[in-house]
Design a protein around this nucleic acid. Sequence first.
DNA 1: TCGCGAATACTTGTATGCAAGCATGTTCGG
DNA 2: CCGAACATGCTTGCATACAAGTATTCGCGA
Lengths: 242, 242
Amino acid sequence: MDAFNDTEGHAPSRMRITISDRAAGLRTRGHVYAALRDAIVTAEFEPGQRLSETDLAERLGVSRTPVREALVRLRDDRLVEIVPQLGTYVTRISHAAVGDAQFVRESLECAAVRLAAQKASAEDIEALHAILQRQVEAHQANDVARFYVFDDELHRSLCDLSAHGIAWSLSQRASGHLNRIRRLSMTLPAYIDEMIDEHHTVVGAVARKKASEAEKALRKHLQMVLSFLPDIQRSHPQYFES
Amino acid sequence: MDAFNDTEGHAPSRMRITISDRAAGLRTRGHVYAALRDAIVTAEFEPGQRLSETDLAERLGVSRTPVREALVRLRDDRLVEIVPQLGTYVTRISHAAVGDAQFVRESLECAAVRLAAQKASAEDIEALHAILQRQVEAHQANDVARFYVFDDELHRSLCDLSAHGIAWSLSQRASGHLNRIRRLSMTLPAYIDEMIDEHHTVVGAVARKKASEAEKALRKHLQMVLSFLPDIQRSHPQYFES
DNA sequence: TCGCGAATACTTGTATGCAAGCATGTTCGG
DNA sequence: CCGAACATGCTTGCATACAAGTATTCGCGA
C-alpha cells in the first residue's frame, strides 16, 4: 500500500533536496524517487531528455546508489528508459503508453467506485462532499494546483472507500504518462466547470448507492483527460514520439 | 511492458544461477529478480522466512547490488518486507493482500477480456483453442506444472488480444499472494475439470463476441482460486498472518 | 543461580571504486 | 582537403567498503 505513498509527495515540487532535509529524515530513497518522478511528471525533466546518474546524484546531494534504485522504479513506471552503457532517457509520451494508462485507470477506479457505492456510509458521503466543496473553492480562487490536489484526493477517497486502496496506488503508479498530460494541460482550464459537474455526478451516484451510474459517470469523467491530448500534442510535439 | 517480462521465467524454477549463466548473459538483474520471485511464489522461501542480502548474494553468485534492486521490486510486489537495520522478510499471506490481488486481477483481466471479445479475429480464436487443447493434454498427462503454464498462457493471450498487454503484466505483478496460494494448491487438483470447463466457457464467449458473457465467465473463473484459500490456510496455517 | 551490562555479530543504507562499452572528437594518413 | 582510425571521456552495471543501528549472547557480579 505504501509502496507508492512515497511518490505522491504534495511537496512544493522542488527537486533540489536541501542538506538539512537529508540530515533530518533518513528516508533519502523515497525522497529521491518522489523528487525525480515529480520532476518528470511536471516536465521539469522534458520527455526525451537525457539523465545522468552522476549528475542527478550531485544535484540531489546523494550518491549514485539511491538514484539508481529510483531510476529502476521509474523504469517500471515507464517514465524513463535505461540503455546500458549509453544513458538514461525520459520517455517521450506515446499514444500506446497513454492508452495503457487510461485502460488501467479506468479498470481499477471504475471497479473501485462500484464497491464504494455499495459500501459508503453517510459519513463517507459527507467527506466526499467536503472535498468537492474545497475543490470548488480552489477553482473560485483560481488556484489550479490546489484544484488538482483535491482532484487526486477525491479519486483516492473513492478508491479507499472500496476497501482496496491499492486501486489508487496502482492507478497512480501506472498513470505517469497520463499525469504528464494532465500537468501540461493545467494551462488549459477550459473544461474545469465540466470536471466539477462530473465530480458531482459521480459523488451523487455514490451517495444514492447507484453503482452502475457511478461507474458510468466516472468512466466518462476519466476519459475527458484524453480530450486534452490533441491540444498538448499540438503545443508540445517534441514531447511525443514518432 | 517488458517491465515484468523479466520475472515470469518459465525457467526450471532453480534459484542457483550458474557461473556460466552469469558470464554469458549480462542481464544478471533480471535473473536475480526472477529467481527470487520464483523462490517466494513456490514457497521455497517460506512466508515469514528471514532473508539476508549477503546470503542471497553469495548463493546467487552475485554482489549485493543486484540483489538489493530485486528486493526493492519485490517490496513493491508486497512479497517481501524490508525493515531497515533489521532484516528482510518474506511476507506472510494476508487476507487483505489476497483480496487486493484478486480485486486487481479481476478488474484488469475482466476489462481486457471485454475488449478481447470485441477485437478477436478468427485466427486469434484458433490460437486460444490451441492453448486449451494443449492444456487438456497436460491434464491427461497428469502434468500439473504444464497445466498451469498453459493456464498462464491462456490468460496472457486474452489480455494481449485486448491490445493492452499491460493488463497481464500488472495483474501478474500484483498477484504474488494469489500465485502463492495457487502454487500451494497444486497438490489439490480437485477442481481441474471445472477449471477446464470454465476456460472453454470463456473462450467460447470470446469466439461468439459476447463481451459481457466472457467477462462474467472469467470473473467466476478467477474467483475459484479463492476457494483454495481455506484449504491452504488449514494445511499451512503458519504461512498466514494473524 | 539469576540478572544485568557490554561487546559482538549480524542487518540494511549509503558511498565509492572498478570494469565494460558506446559516442564523439581529434589526429594522422592518403 | 577529405576520410578513417584511434584515443578520450562519458555512460551504466557490478562489486566492495564504510556507516548506523539492533538483537543476541557471553561474561561478570551479586
